[in-house]
């Protein structure tokens, strides 16, 4: 999704002439939508499976986006406009009004998710059943897609297009290790994302390194920590438990053997 949004953002910039979150949002939504249509078209009319179709379409869109981005940088005074920061992100390039937009979007999103939590849960778990009991699936799916596109556009400036999808997935993956409830997982994913964001942005200020990669590194570290040390699902605890079980089993076998000998 993030990759598919890039050409739309570039075209929106070329048409509008300057940086504007709203215009970028429209551009990203359009090219994201076109990418989705392309993917569905390929899946429906060829023997290519969905994952392969996603790979093909996204890489083409991303390539197109990079071409446009390079062109903008060379021709349109893109350096001044800061559009090249979209590749790797630069939190420092955010202006005061950008921050306001970010805040408003974040609050709107949290409220939307709170209102439709139950519905989002059922359409992600079992869409067919949701449709059967009269949940407006296509409408809610549209709302969900809109939320995702908004996050992509807004996150692009901070993290960059290359790593946006990583920022989407990694905190949620890490959160999955700590809980079995979707409510907690959602909350935790938000907290992990925020933590990585703060740490990454801070480090980037100190070390003069682009923000995006640092944020992702922090998110990945959180994921690795969860993967290894989470209480129930973590790898270490699993290994320790297995070790204890094996010991128990061995001492049991030993006792049986002794019993036989006696």
């Amino acid at each position: 999704m993030a990759h598919a949004a890039l050409p739309g953002i570039c075209i929106a910039f070329l048409l509008y002439g300057q940086k504007s979150l709203l215009v970028f949002l429209i551009g990203a939504a359009c090219s994201g939508y076109i990418a989705t249509v392309c993917i569905q078209f390929i899946v429906k009319h060829t023997r290519i499976k969905e994952d392969a179709a996603i790979g093909i379409v996204l890489s083409v869109f991303f390539g197109l986006g990079i071409v446009l981005l390079t062109w903008i940088n060379q021709h349109e005074g893109g350096n001044q406009s800061g559009i090249n920061d979209f590749l790797f992100g630069k939190a420092a390039s955010l202006t005061g009004s950008d921050v306001n937009v970010l805040t408003v979007t974040a609050i709107t999103m949290i409220i939307t998710i709170l209102i439709f939590f139950k519905e989002f849960k059922i359409i992600t778990f079992d869409r067919a059943f949701a449709q059967g009991i009269g949940v407006p699936v296509s409408l809610l799916n549209g709302v969900l897609m809109f939320l995702i596109v908004s996050v992509v556009v807004i996150g692009l400036q901070a993290v960059g297009v290359v790593l946006m999808s990583a920022l989407f997935i990694t905190p949620a993956l890490a959160a999955r290790y700590w809980t079995e409830k979707l409510e907690w997982m959602t909350l935790l994913a938000g907290v992990f994302g925020a933590l990585s964001g703060v740490a990454g942005a801070y480090m980037s200020l100190i070390a003069y390194v682009p923000t995006g990669p640092l944020v992702i590194i922090f998110a990945t570290m959180l994921f690795l920590f969860s993967f290894l040390f989470a209480p129930k699902r973590g790898l270490c605890n699993k290994m320790i438990r297995r070790h204890i079980e094996r010991k128990k089993l061995r001492s049991k076998q030993l006792m049986y053997k002794r019993g036989e000998q006696l």
Partner: peptide, 27 residues
């Protein structure tokens, strides 16, 4: 037809059967 690794428990899944009666955005 569904992903059984979804983070939820049995009671929650059964509760989904009540969503049509509960209505939109109500608990």
């Amino acid at each position: 037809s569904v992903d059984w690794d979804f983070p939820t428990n049995a009671l929650d899944v059964v509760l989904m059967g009540r969503y049509g009666h509960i209505g939109l955005w109500k608990r």
